[in-house]
Design a protein around this nucleic acid. Structure first.
Length: 424
RNA sequence: GGUGAGGUGGGUGAGUGGCUGAAACCACCAGUUUGCUAAACUGGCGUACUCUAACGGGUACCGCGGGUUCGAAUCCCGCCCUCACCGCCA
């Protein structure tokens, strides 16, 4: 959620920035400015009335104490009359506040100044790349066929148990998953993150605070009976740990990491994009989250990006780093880097990580603040997160790129975790 | 799931209708004292919205939401959560 003060002070600039994200409803900004003005004038009026009513009540109390019953009784009429006025004004105030809020939550975050305009994946900027694209022979198999061939991945079984898009990993496939999770968690710990095991279901407040609600409601699985949501990413519980907190500046940077399965409905996806592990309803992911001082968040973003790149290098996977254009970056982020690996049998890039700085967009909803040393006032902290890494697609790339006539070769860094060197 | 007790500021905890945005203590911050540290003493110390050029005001908030009343932390209703015991149970 954007900060009201920014909209109030620089509405034109806000609109300019929103245009880069191709946000079509720029009139919302003007409407908010108007509503805000109205809201504040009503609040002044309301506060004055409340003040009047309150002081009369105090007076009545005084009179009773002095034994002046009749005078007290006589005074009771005035606050009673004021109350009607106050109630009306309050209704009005609440309605306007609600209208303002409804508009405010529709505005996406403002993109950072380096975010390119655009709305197509082609408009994303390749920042750098790493690793060598593997040369596979013509009869190289896509990962879903490899999964079947070596009996390590069964999509059809998942359909039987649950539905399409719920993979089942078997034998060395399952062990590979577990190895990757452990590897990623160990790497995160070495990088200074505290490991957390959060709940996999969250309540509405949490889903709202990180921006999943109301924007992406349709993308989450919903437990209707208890009003819980299955998490689409560990970002939600990990960041919400700090909801309604005023942290100490000395605690920065706060670094937490956690492994969770992620559940996504992926409504509207179809075709070859969703084959095998390319797009599934449940996948495993290790997420890293940092909470920092606003002055340092962009340095932190680079640090997190480097961490994820390091993982891909250790896994010997070819990758590229994209700076997302305005139209392609998410609702809540100010700047996002996507990392993609090249899946050589499919001959396509797969997104395996997304590293974002949300600046104060999430913390404003979270009410996550810190006390500024100099001004002694509370300020919103910056939140960041990144996948480090998302498993399903990593596995897809790994299987495809490392296939040999003898079997699928496990990268060196993973062997101490898998306990085997080859899947055959 | 059942029954009972309870939810007050960073912490402990007082407060059953007005003088309570909230005692006291602890923690914390600033200062005095001190060779240093400690102790002692003095002062300060919630959040949000809002008015003001500023000084300084106003309003709301005692788990959340409603109600009664001139007036609610305090009374009433609903919900949430915590603890204890019982039941069930990986």
């Amino acid at each position: 959620m954007l900060e009201l003060s920014v909209i109030r002070e620089k509405p034109d600039w806000v609109k300019e920035r929103l245009a880069i994200k191709n946000f079509p409803h720029l009139q919302l900004v003007d409407e908010i400015v108007e509503l805000d003005k109205k809201r504040r004038s009503i609040q002044k009026e309301l506060d004055d009335l409340l003040h009047k009513s309150k002081s009369i009540s105090k007076e009545i109390g005084e009179l009773y104490k002095q034994g002046k019953r009749e005078e007290a009784e006589a005074l009771k009429q005035e606050p009673k009359r004021l109350k009607e006025e106050i109630n009306k004004l309050e209704d009005n105030f609440d309605a306007i506040k609600q209208e303002e809020f409804d508009r405010l939550i529709k505005l996406p975050n403002l993109p950072h100044s380096c975010v390119p305009k655009g709305h197509l994946p082609e408009d994303n900027v390749e920042v750098r790349s790493g690793g060598e694209l593997p040369q596979l022979s013509g009869d190289a198999l896509p990962h879903w066929e490899l999964g079947e061939k070596y009996n390590i991945l069964d999509m059809r079984l998942g359909s039987k148990l649950t539905g399409a898009g719920f993979p089942v990993f078997i034998g060395k496939g399952a062990r590979l998953q577990r190895a990757l999770i452990n590897f990623f968690l160990d790497e995160a710990r070495s990088a200074g993150y505290t490991e957390i095991q959060p709940p996999h279901l969250v309540n509405e407040k949490s889903a709202f605070a990180t921006g999943q609600l109301p924007d992406k409601e349709g993308q989450m699985y919903h437990i209707v009976e208890d009003k819980f949501f299955l998490i689409p990413t560990a970002e939600v519980p990990l960041t919400n740990i700090y909801r309604d907190e005023i942290v100490s500046e000395a605690d920065f940077p706060i670094k937490v990491a956690g492994y969770t399965p992620c559940f996504r409905r992926e409504a509207g996806s179809y075709g070859k994009d969703v084959r095998g592990l390319n797009r599934v309803h449940q996948f495993d992911k290790v997420e890293i989250v940092q909470i920092t001082h606003p002055d340092h968040s962009y340095a932190t973003l680079e640090e997190m990006l480097e961490h994820v790149e390091g993982l891909l290098e250790k896994l010997e996977l070819p990758y590229r780093v994209l700076r997302l254009c305005g139209g392609d970056s998410t609702f809540a982020s100010a700047l996002t880097y996507d990392l993609e690996t090249y899946s050589a049998a499919q001959k396509r890039w797969l997104e395996v990580s997304s590293v974002s700085n949300f600046e104060t967009f999430q913390s404003n909803r979270l009410k996550l603040r810190f006390r500024d040393k100099e001004s002694k006032k509370t300020r919103l902290a910056h939140t960041l997160n990144g996948s480090a890494l998302a498993l399903a697609r990593i596995v897809a790339t790994l299987l495809e790129n490392n296939q040999t006539p003898e079997g699928i070769v496990i990268p060196w860094a993973l062997r101490q975790y898998t306990g085997f060197e080859i899947i055959n």
